[in-house]
Amino acid sequence: MQYHGSSAYDQSVFLKAYLARRHRPNSPNNLIERPIMLELIGEITGKRVLDLGCGDGRFSADLIERGCCFYEGVEGSLQMVQEAQAHIEAHSSSIQHISMEDWQPNEASVDLAVSRLAVHYLRDTHNLFTKVYHALREDGEWIFSVQHPLLTASMKSADIGRARTDWIVDDYFENGMRSEPWIGEQIVKYHRTIEDYIQGCLKAGFSILDLREGKPIKALFEDEAEFARRLRIPLFLIIKCKKNP
């Protein structure tokens, strides 16, 4: 069976396995992607933040610690929403149980919009980017991460089913649906090139402020072999944009 969007996270066995994997000590999300996201976000004292595809909501603690005055999460999985509600500070946060496709923005209501490793689940990014643009206030910023297009281009390496010693890149310019074997299930993602992500942001009205591919920082790794392995291919693409007037 193939799972689209956030539907896999409403399967209890999958969710339990995902959370254990996601929060393991050597998770590349924690050692590579999260530090870059926080660097690009910077200080956000007094700002309202929107988190699209917020998952278990634990990122809200980072954002509130950095001074955001209100955190709003959007999440399509009911089980993830329940996880998030256990982690967020109720007085300064809210979680909407709605998919990113169905979410409708309040005009000029937030200062910063973020999304961590969720946009690649969407068939239509133009609609999302346009909605984010309208949700942001003047000079608002949009920062998101996706699985790196070198990985989503082909699932031939993912089919190996073990720690990879090399990676196959194929069909890079063939955009569209991919079905990835992951944590015992088939998860649908959508491949786009780096150029496609950049052009999508520009067409929605954003200017590009920064782009990162997640080069590992040795000081963050306790396992030297893991650090060496993560130097071989980028796992993440992180883009920072600004709303043009």
Score class of each variant (00 low, 15 high):
Arg21His: 15
Leu38Ala: 09
Ala113Asp: 07
Val110Gln: 14
Ala108His: 14
Gln104Arg: 12
His191Trp: 07
His148Met: 04
Ile98Met: 11
Arg48Phe: 07
Ile217Tyr: 06
Leu63Cys: 09
Arg164Trp: 13
Glu107Trp: 13
Ile143Gln: 06
Lys16Ala: 09
His120Tyr: 04
Pro35Met: 07
Cys54Ser: 15
Pro25Asn: 11
Ala219His: 05
Tyr197Asp: 01
Ser179Tyr: 03
Lys218Gln: 14
Glu226Cys: 03
Leu237Cys: 04
Pro105Met: 06
Glu101Pro: 00
Ile32Arg: 12
His191Pro: 04
Ala228Glu: 15
Ala163Phe: 08
His148Cys: 02
Leu112Asp: 06
Leu31Thr: 02
Arg232Lys: 15
Gly57Ser: 08
Ile194Lys: 13
Val114Ser: 09
Val49Asp: 07
His120Asp: 01
His134Glu: 10
Ile208Pro: 08
Arg212Ser: 13
Phe70Trp: 15
Gly214Tyr: 04
Glu89Asn: 15
Val188Ile: 13
Phe227His: 09
Arg178Tyr: 01
Gln199Val: 05
Pro25Arg: 12
His97Phe: 04
Glu33Gly: 08
Gly161Thr: 02
Asp159Glu: 14
Ile36Thr: 13
Ile233Asn: 09
Glu224Phe: 06
Pro216Thr: 08
Ile187Pro: 00
Gly200His: 05
Val169Pro: 02
Ser154Asn: 05
Ser109His: 11
Leu112Glu: 07
Ala108Ile: 02
Met155Phe: 04
Lys242Ile: 14
Ser6Asn: 01
Leu136Pro: 04
Asn30Ser: 15
Leu52Glu: 02
Cys241Pro: 05
Gln85Thr: 03
Ile95Glu: 03
Leu19Arg: 13
Ser154Cys: 06
Ser115His: 05
Ala61Leu: 14
His97Ala: 02
Ile95Thr: 09
Lys240Pro: 03
Phe70Gln: 11
Asp159Ala: 12
Arg137Val: 07
Ala86Glu: 14
